[in-house]
Amino acid sequence: MTGPSVSSPETLPTPSGDAAAGIGRRISRWFYGRPGIFLLLLLLPPLLWLGIVYVGSLFALLLNSFFAIDPFTGMVKYELTLATWKQLFTLANFDIIMRTVTMAACVTVGAAIIGFPLAHYMARYAGPRIKGLLYLAVMLPLWSSYLVRLYAWKLILAKEGIISWIAAHTGLSWLLDALLALPVIGGPSLSVSYIGMFLVFLYIWLPFMILPIEAALERVPRTVTDASADLGARPGMTFRKVILPLAFPGVVAGSIFTFSLTLGDYIIPGVVGSSRLFIGQAVYLHQGTAGNLPLAAAFSTVPIVIMAAYLMIAKRLGAFNAL
Protein backbone atom coordinates (compact mmCIF):
# COMPACT_ATOMS: atom_id res chain seq x y z
CA MET A 1 0.00 0.00 0.00
CA THR A 2 1.22 3.46 -0.81
CA GLY A 3 0.12 6.89 0.27
CA PRO A 4 -0.91 8.11 3.69
CA SER A 5 -3.51 6.06 5.44
CA VAL A 6 -6.23 8.05 7.10
CA SER A 7 -6.78 5.50 9.80
CA SER A 8 -3.14 5.23 10.82
CA PRO A 9 -2.71 5.58 14.58
CA GLU A 10 0.08 8.18 14.15
CA THR A 11 -2.14 10.74 12.46
CA LEU A 12 -5.31 10.26 14.50
CA PRO A 13 -5.08 11.49 18.08
CA THR A 14 -6.73 9.18 20.56
CA PRO A 15 -9.69 10.73 22.39
CA SER A 16 -8.09 10.26 25.81
CA GLY A 17 -5.47 12.83 24.89
CA ASP A 18 -1.69 12.98 24.61
CA ALA A 19 -0.17 10.76 27.24
CA ALA A 20 2.91 12.88 27.99
CA ALA A 21 1.19 16.24 28.58
CA GLY A 22 -1.81 14.70 30.30
CA ILE A 23 -0.22 13.56 33.56
CA GLY A 24 -1.85 16.30 35.61
CA ARG A 25 -5.10 15.57 33.92
CA ARG A 26 -4.79 11.86 34.60
CA ILE A 27 -3.96 12.47 38.26
CA SER A 28 -6.98 14.74 38.54
CA ARG A 29 -9.20 12.09 36.97
CA TRP A 30 -7.83 9.41 39.25
CA PHE A 31 -8.45 11.47 42.36
CA TYR A 32 -11.84 12.69 41.16
CA GLY A 33 -13.13 9.13 41.29
CA ARG A 34 -11.61 8.58 44.75
CA PRO A 35 -12.51 11.60 46.89
CA GLY A 36 -11.84 9.63 50.06
CA ILE A 37 -8.18 9.13 49.25
CA PHE A 38 -7.78 12.78 48.29
CA LEU A 39 -9.33 13.88 51.58
CA LEU A 40 -7.05 11.51 53.48
CA LEU A 41 -3.98 12.95 51.75
CA LEU A 42 -5.08 16.48 52.63
CA LEU A 43 -5.83 15.66 56.24
CA LEU A 44 -2.84 13.43 56.93
CA PRO A 45 -0.31 16.17 57.81
CA PRO A 46 -2.59 18.10 60.20
CA LEU A 47 -3.84 14.86 61.73
CA LEU A 48 -0.28 13.67 62.31
CA TRP A 49 0.59 17.02 63.80
CA LEU A 50 -2.44 17.23 66.06
CA GLY A 51 -2.65 13.55 66.89
CA ILE A 52 0.94 12.65 67.54
CA VAL A 53 2.97 15.78 68.08
CA TYR A 54 0.33 17.72 70.01
CA VAL A 55 -2.02 15.32 71.80
CA GLY A 56 0.77 12.76 72.18
CA SER A 57 3.09 15.17 73.93
CA LEU A 58 0.23 16.36 76.08
CA PHE A 59 -0.29 12.82 77.29
CA ALA A 60 3.42 12.38 77.86
CA LEU A 61 3.24 15.51 80.00
CA LEU A 62 0.26 14.22 81.92
CA LEU A 63 2.07 10.93 82.47
CA ASN A 64 5.06 12.81 83.87
CA SER A 65 2.89 14.23 86.63
CA PHE A 66 2.38 10.70 87.94
CA PHE A 67 6.11 10.32 88.55
CA ALA A 68 7.87 12.09 91.38
CA ILE A 69 11.26 13.58 92.04
CA ASP A 70 13.59 11.81 94.46
CA PRO A 71 14.18 14.30 97.27
CA PHE A 72 17.81 13.14 97.78
CA THR A 73 19.17 12.81 94.27
CA GLY A 74 16.90 15.38 92.65
CA MET A 75 16.35 12.88 89.82
CA VAL A 76 12.95 11.84 88.45
CA LYS A 77 11.98 8.38 89.64
CA TYR A 78 9.98 6.56 86.99
CA GLU A 79 7.49 4.87 89.27
CA LEU A 80 3.80 5.66 89.23
CA THR A 81 2.86 7.67 92.32
CA LEU A 82 0.42 10.39 93.40
CA ALA A 83 3.08 12.15 95.48
CA THR A 84 3.47 14.98 92.96
CA TRP A 85 -0.28 15.60 92.89
CA LYS A 86 -0.32 15.73 96.68
CA GLN A 87 2.43 18.29 96.48
CA LEU A 88 0.40 20.34 93.99
CA PHE A 89 -2.38 20.78 96.51
CA THR A 90 -0.20 22.07 99.30
CA LEU A 91 -1.27 25.48 100.48
CA ALA A 92 1.46 27.43 98.68
CA ASN A 93 0.79 25.80 95.33
CA PHE A 94 -2.98 26.01 95.73
CA ASP A 95 -2.50 29.74 96.34
CA ILE A 96 -0.77 30.03 92.99
CA ILE A 97 -3.65 28.27 91.26
CA MET A 98 -6.31 30.41 92.94
CA ARG A 99 -4.41 33.60 92.23
CA THR A 100 -4.07 32.74 88.55
CA VAL A 101 -7.67 31.60 88.11
CA THR A 102 -9.01 34.72 89.85
CA MET A 103 -6.90 36.95 87.63
CA ALA A 104 -7.98 35.05 84.51
CA ALA A 105 -11.63 35.35 85.53
CA CYS A 106 -11.33 39.09 86.23
CA VAL A 107 -9.54 39.68 82.92
CA THR A 108 -12.22 37.71 81.07
CA VAL A 109 -15.11 39.58 82.66
CA GLY A 110 -13.35 42.91 82.17
CA ALA A 111 -12.62 42.17 78.52
CA ALA A 112 -16.21 41.12 77.91
CA ILE A 113 -17.58 44.29 79.53
CA ILE A 114 -15.23 46.57 77.61
CA GLY A 115 -15.25 44.57 74.39
CA PHE A 116 -18.98 44.03 73.94
CA PRO A 117 -20.06 47.62 73.27
CA LEU A 118 -17.28 48.11 70.75
CA ALA A 119 -18.06 44.81 69.01
CA HIS A 120 -21.75 45.74 69.04
CA TYR A 121 -21.06 49.10 67.48
CA MET A 122 -18.77 47.56 64.85
CA ALA A 123 -21.24 44.83 63.88
CA ARG A 124 -24.50 46.76 63.88
CA TYR A 125 -23.95 50.48 63.51
CA ALA A 126 -20.57 51.34 61.96
CA GLY A 127 -20.43 52.03 58.23
CA PRO A 128 -17.90 50.11 56.16
CA ARG A 129 -15.22 52.80 56.50
CA ILE A 130 -15.44 53.17 60.25
CA LYS A 131 -15.71 49.42 60.63
CA GLY A 132 -12.48 48.98 58.67
CA LEU A 133 -10.74 51.57 60.81
CA LEU A 134 -11.96 49.89 63.99
CA TYR A 135 -10.78 46.48 62.77
CA LEU A 136 -7.40 48.06 62.19
CA ALA A 137 -7.40 49.69 65.61
CA VAL A 138 -8.28 46.41 67.30
CA MET A 139 -5.69 44.36 65.44
CA LEU A 140 -2.89 46.88 65.15
CA PRO A 141 -1.48 46.16 68.64
CA LEU A 142 -1.20 42.48 67.68
CA TRP A 143 1.26 43.38 64.93
CA SER A 144 3.85 44.80 67.29
CA SER A 145 5.96 42.78 69.69
CA TYR A 146 4.32 41.52 72.83
CA LEU A 147 7.41 42.39 74.87
CA VAL A 148 7.59 45.94 73.55
CA ARG A 149 3.98 46.53 74.50
CA LEU A 150 4.52 44.94 77.89
CA TYR A 151 7.51 47.14 78.76
CA ALA A 152 5.66 50.17 77.42
CA TRP A 153 2.94 49.41 79.95
CA LYS A 154 5.51 48.98 82.68
CA LEU A 155 6.58 52.56 82.00
CA ILE A 156 3.03 53.82 81.79
CA LEU A 157 2.18 52.25 85.15
CA ALA A 158 5.41 53.15 86.93
CA LYS A 159 5.49 55.56 89.85
CA GLU A 160 7.01 58.21 87.55
CA GLY A 161 4.80 57.10 84.67
CA ILE A 162 2.15 58.93 82.73
CA ILE A 163 -0.78 57.75 84.86
CA SER A 164 0.74 59.18 88.05
CA TRP A 165 1.68 62.31 86.14
CA ILE A 166 -1.87 62.80 84.86
CA ALA A 167 -3.30 62.09 88.30
CA ALA A 168 -0.95 64.67 89.83
CA HIS A 169 -1.85 67.32 87.24
CA THR A 170 -5.60 66.80 87.46
CA GLY A 171 -5.72 66.75 91.22
CA LEU A 172 -6.72 63.08 91.21
CA SER A 173 -3.67 61.80 93.08
CA TRP A 174 -5.88 61.01 96.05
CA LEU A 175 -7.93 58.64 93.86
CA LEU A 176 -4.81 56.82 92.65
CA ASP A 177 -3.47 56.64 96.20
CA ALA A 178 -6.79 55.32 97.45
CA LEU A 179 -6.74 52.64 94.75
CA LEU A 180 -3.17 51.65 95.63
CA ALA A 181 -4.02 51.62 99.32
CA LEU A 182 -6.58 48.86 98.74
CA PRO A 183 -5.53 45.62 100.41
CA VAL A 184 -4.25 42.76 98.21
CA ILE A 185 -4.85 44.41 94.82
CA GLY A 186 -3.02 47.64 95.70
CA GLY A 187 0.71 48.21 96.12
CA PRO A 188 3.45 50.82 96.15
CA SER A 189 2.75 51.73 92.53
CA LEU A 190 0.50 50.50 89.71
CA SER A 191 3.38 48.62 88.08
CA VAL A 192 3.84 46.41 91.10
CA SER A 193 0.15 45.88 91.92
CA TYR A 194 -2.50 43.43 90.78
CA ILE A 195 -4.48 46.38 89.43
CA GLY A 196 -1.61 47.14 87.08
CA MET A 197 -1.26 43.51 86.07
CA PHE A 198 -5.01 43.34 85.40
CA LEU A 199 -4.79 46.42 83.17
CA VAL A 200 -1.92 44.94 81.18
CA PHE A 201 -3.64 41.57 80.75
CA LEU A 202 -6.82 43.35 79.73
CA TYR A 203 -5.01 45.39 77.12
CA ILE A 204 -3.02 42.50 75.69
CA TRP A 205 -5.93 40.05 75.33
CA LEU A 206 -8.78 42.45 74.51
CA PRO A 207 -8.65 41.87 70.71
CA PHE A 208 -9.24 38.17 71.29
CA MET A 209 -12.52 39.05 72.99
CA ILE A 210 -13.72 41.73 70.56
CA LEU A 211 -13.26 39.80 67.33
CA PRO A 212 -15.35 36.69 68.16
CA ILE A 213 -18.16 38.80 69.66
CA GLU A 214 -18.14 41.00 66.58
CA ALA A 215 -18.32 37.92 64.34
CA ALA A 216 -21.25 36.52 66.34
CA LEU A 217 -23.17 39.82 66.26
CA GLU A 218 -22.50 40.15 62.56
CA ARG A 219 -24.54 36.99 62.01
CA VAL A 220 -27.64 38.37 63.77
CA PRO A 221 -29.94 39.60 61.00
CA ARG A 222 -31.29 43.12 61.33
CA THR A 223 -34.82 41.81 60.87
CA VAL A 224 -34.53 39.62 63.98
CA THR A 225 -33.97 42.63 66.23
CA ASP A 226 -36.60 44.53 64.24
CA ALA A 227 -39.02 41.69 64.95
CA SER A 228 -38.34 41.99 68.66
CA ALA A 229 -39.09 45.72 68.63
CA ASP A 230 -42.12 45.09 66.44
CA LEU A 231 -43.51 42.68 69.04
CA GLY A 232 -43.27 45.37 71.70
CA ALA A 233 -39.82 44.88 73.23
CA ARG A 234 -38.02 48.05 74.23
CA PRO A 235 -34.29 48.19 73.31
CA GLY A 236 -33.19 46.89 76.73
CA MET A 237 -35.46 43.88 76.43
CA THR A 238 -34.33 43.21 72.85
CA PHE A 239 -30.75 43.30 74.07
CA ARG A 240 -31.34 40.86 76.91
CA LYS A 241 -33.65 38.45 75.12
CA VAL A 242 -32.30 38.49 71.57
CA ILE A 243 -28.94 40.17 71.04
CA LEU A 244 -27.14 38.84 74.10
CA PRO A 245 -28.25 35.21 73.73
CA LEU A 246 -27.32 35.23 70.05
CA ALA A 247 -23.95 36.84 70.78
CA PHE A 248 -23.28 34.50 73.68
CA PRO A 249 -21.36 31.88 71.67
CA GLY A 250 -19.06 34.72 70.59
CA VAL A 251 -18.61 35.84 74.20
CA VAL A 252 -17.80 32.26 75.19
CA ALA A 253 -15.32 31.89 72.31
CA GLY A 254 -13.69 35.17 73.31
CA SER A 255 -13.60 34.21 76.96
CA ILE A 256 -11.93 30.90 76.09
CA PHE A 257 -9.14 32.94 74.53
CA THR A 258 -8.77 35.52 77.29
CA PHE A 259 -9.18 32.99 80.08
CA SER A 260 -6.75 30.38 78.78
CA LEU A 261 -4.22 32.95 77.58
CA THR A 262 -4.18 34.55 81.04
CA LEU A 263 -4.01 31.17 82.75
CA GLY A 264 -0.94 30.17 80.78
CA ASP A 265 0.95 33.45 80.59
CA TYR A 266 4.24 33.60 82.50
CA ILE A 267 5.80 36.82 81.18
CA ILE A 268 3.33 39.50 82.26
CA PRO A 269 3.25 38.38 85.95
CA GLY A 270 7.05 38.49 85.90
CA VAL A 271 7.27 42.03 84.58
CA VAL A 272 4.26 43.74 86.15
CA GLY A 273 2.85 43.01 89.59
CA SER A 274 4.15 41.59 92.83
CA SER A 275 6.65 38.77 93.10
CA ARG A 276 3.93 36.23 93.90
CA LEU A 277 3.86 33.40 91.39
CA PHE A 278 1.31 32.57 88.72
CA ILE A 279 0.78 29.10 87.20
CA GLY A 280 2.85 29.85 84.12
CA GLN A 281 5.75 31.04 86.22
CA ALA A 282 5.49 28.01 88.48
CA VAL A 283 5.66 25.68 85.47
CA TYR A 284 8.63 27.59 84.17
CA LEU A 285 10.46 27.53 87.49
CA HIS A 286 9.81 23.89 88.28
CA GLN A 287 10.83 22.46 84.94
CA GLY A 288 13.70 24.87 84.39
CA THR A 289 15.45 26.07 87.53
CA ALA A 290 14.25 23.40 89.95
CA GLY A 291 14.34 20.53 87.48
CA ASN A 292 11.12 19.20 88.94
CA LEU A 293 9.50 18.13 85.69
CA PRO A 294 6.70 16.09 87.35
CA LEU A 295 5.48 19.08 89.39
CA ALA A 296 5.72 21.33 86.34
CA ALA A 297 3.63 18.77 84.46
CA ALA A 298 1.08 18.63 87.26
CA PHE A 299 0.86 22.43 87.25
CA SER A 300 0.34 22.58 83.51
CA THR A 301 -2.59 20.17 83.66
CA VAL A 302 -4.43 22.63 85.90
CA PRO A 303 -5.40 25.06 83.10
CA ILE A 304 -6.47 22.11 80.93
CA VAL A 305 -8.79 20.79 83.63
CA ILE A 306 -10.14 24.26 84.37
CA MET A 307 -10.82 24.94 80.69
CA ALA A 308 -12.57 21.59 80.28
CA ALA A 309 -14.79 22.34 83.27
CA TYR A 310 -15.41 25.85 81.95
CA LEU A 311 -16.53 24.60 78.55
CA MET A 312 -18.83 22.04 80.13
CA ILE A 313 -20.51 24.71 82.24
CA ALA A 314 -20.81 26.98 79.20
CA LYS A 315 -22.49 24.17 77.28
CA ARG A 316 -24.88 23.55 80.18
CA LEU A 317 -25.80 27.23 80.13
CA GLY A 318 -26.76 26.85 76.49
CA ALA A 319 -23.87 28.90 75.15
CA PHE A 320 -23.75 26.83 71.97
CA ASN A 321 -27.50 26.50 71.37
CA ALA A 322 -27.51 29.27 68.83
CA LEU A 323 -24.61 27.81 66.85
Binding site: P221, T223, V224, D226, A227, S228, A229, D230, L231, G232, A233, R234, M237, K241, V242, P245, L246, G318, N321, A322
Partner: peptide, 30 residues
Protein backbone atom coordinates in the same frame (compact mmCIF):
# COMPACT_ATOMS: atom_id res chain seq x y z
CA UNK B 1 -42.44 48.85 70.22
CA UNK B 2 -45.21 51.34 71.02
CA UNK B 3 -47.35 50.70 67.95
CA UNK B 4 -50.37 48.46 67.81
CA UNK B 5 -49.07 46.94 64.59
CA UNK B 6 -47.19 43.70 63.95
CA UNK B 7 -45.12 42.53 61.02
CA UNK B 8 -44.46 39.29 59.17
CA UNK B 9 -40.99 39.67 57.72
CA UNK B 10 -39.86 38.50 54.32
CA UNK B 11 -37.16 36.27 55.84
CA UNK B 12 -39.55 35.38 58.73
CA UNK B 13 -36.95 36.70 61.26
CA UNK B 14 -37.72 33.98 63.78
CA UNK B 15 -35.56 33.94 66.91
CA UNK B 16 -33.17 31.04 66.23
CA UNK B 17 -32.34 30.45 69.89
CA UNK B 18 -35.96 29.96 70.98
CA UNK B 19 -38.45 27.15 70.49
CA UNK B 20 -41.39 27.68 68.19
CA UNK B 21 -43.68 28.18 71.19
CA UNK B 22 -41.36 30.78 72.72
CA UNK B 23 -41.16 32.55 69.39
CA UNK B 24 -44.94 32.74 69.16
CA UNK B 25 -45.29 33.77 72.81
CA UNK B 26 -42.60 36.46 72.58
CA UNK B 27 -45.08 39.31 72.27
CA UNK B 28 -46.90 38.09 75.39
CA UNK B 29 -43.66 37.62 77.33
CA UNK B 30 -42.75 41.22 76.52
Amino acid sequence: FERDVNTVFQDYALFPHMSVADNVAYGLMV
